[in-house]
């Protein structure tokens, strides 16, 4: 099932994401997803997230699909050139993966193989363009594909609370032009910023899913403020997390914060994307508290 069909039906689409393991056993990932994420629409599977080498997104997507979940294949341009990316897309379509999320990807220097060659032959925009070419039955060079063409729900990302929101909106417009059909955002902690971003982004007419992270501690919030692009946790949330460490540790404070953001932003977006970062078990509680 392509998640664009749900957006088209006006549904509020809930997705989450999981990261494949640094190893060959996916049982733990699949079990957690089955237990905590089976109630939601689809599950993103990250592609060597933060440039840290792990099992590929595609085989982990297949494992989730076999367990009855709907995976979204994340595809970055950091590790593969246009030949490998197109080849991967054809393989994904053959295996029945029809939801994708196209990203540029973090730089190789950010991860655990900082000496690796960064590829970036394509970027998120030209990758979306490439997917559209494949859907028309030809490759990026214009050579015809044999037989049926693939069809994907094509997603992309945008960072609404970035300090360069104009550059983000310009990039979003280019992604729409290149074929993006839905957007997932970087984690939002400032509803007002998100709402004002959505006022500008609604001109593109594409569904946007609010990005949500459940903050685990004041330390994590401060770390994100200092190190994660496009993420800013306001001081009053950091204070709330610091006020009662046990409550924060148990996830109660974080879930309350995340649920409040979802409630405030819900009228302005078409779905929510939860990046649980290991707290998959809190997702059902978060959705309940947010009234979804």
């Amino acid at each position: 099932m392509r998640i664009t069909e749900l957006f088209d039906n006006g549904e509020f689409v809930v997705t989450a994401e999981v990261g494949p393991p640094k190893g060959i056993n996916v049982d733990h990932v699949v079990e957690e997803a089955k237990e905590y994420l089976s109630g939601i629409t689809a599950v993103n599977v990250t592609d060597n997230q933060s440039s840290v080498m792990r099992m590929g997104s595609l085989p982990a997507c297949i494992a989730l699909k076999n367990a009855g979940l709907t995976p979204i294949l994340q595809l970055t341009c950091r590790d593969r050139n246009r030949i490998a990316l197109q080849s991967e897309l054809l393989g994904a379509a053959m295996l029945g993966i029809d939801n994708i999320l196209c990203l540029t990807g973090d730089h190789t220097k950010m991860g655990d193989h900082p000496g690796a060659k960064p590829v970036f032959d394509l970027d998120s925009v030209s990758l979306l363009h490439t997917v559209c070419q494949l859907e028309k039955g030809m490759d990026l060079s214009g050579n015809p594909l044999v037989g049926e063409a693939p069809k994907f729900a094509k997603g992309a990302v945008v960072s609404p609370c970035s300090d360069s929101v104009d550059a983000q909106l310009a990039k979003m417009e280019r992604k729409v032009m290149a074929g993006a059909e839905y957007f997932q955002t970087q984690a939002v902690f400032d509803s007002e910023k998100f709402i004002s971003f959505m006022e500008k982004a609604k001109q593109f007419g594409k569904p946007v899913q609010l990005g949500v992270i459940i903050p685990k501690s004041a330390g994590m919030a401060k770390f994100m403020n200092n190190n994660v692009a496009g993420v800013h946790v306001p001081q009053h949330m950091i204070d709330a997390l610091a006020a009662d460490k046990e409550r924060a540790k148990a996830g109660i404070t974080g879930v309350e914060i995340a649920a409040q953001i979802i409630k405030e932003c819900r009228p302005y977006c078409q779905g929510v994307h939860i990046m649980a970062l290991g707290w998959e078990a809190k997702v059902p509680e978060l959705l309940k508290l947010a009234g979804i």
């Binding site: 970027d123 998120s124 970035s162 983000q168 990039k171 280019r174 190190n227 692009a229």
Partner: peptide, 14 residues
């Protein structure tokens, strides 16, 4: 990253 289609999401404080 030598990007030719606009900014990635990786810039922080410019």
């Amino acid at each position: 990253k030598g990007l030719v289609n606009g900014q990635c999401g990786g810039a922080k404080n410019g």
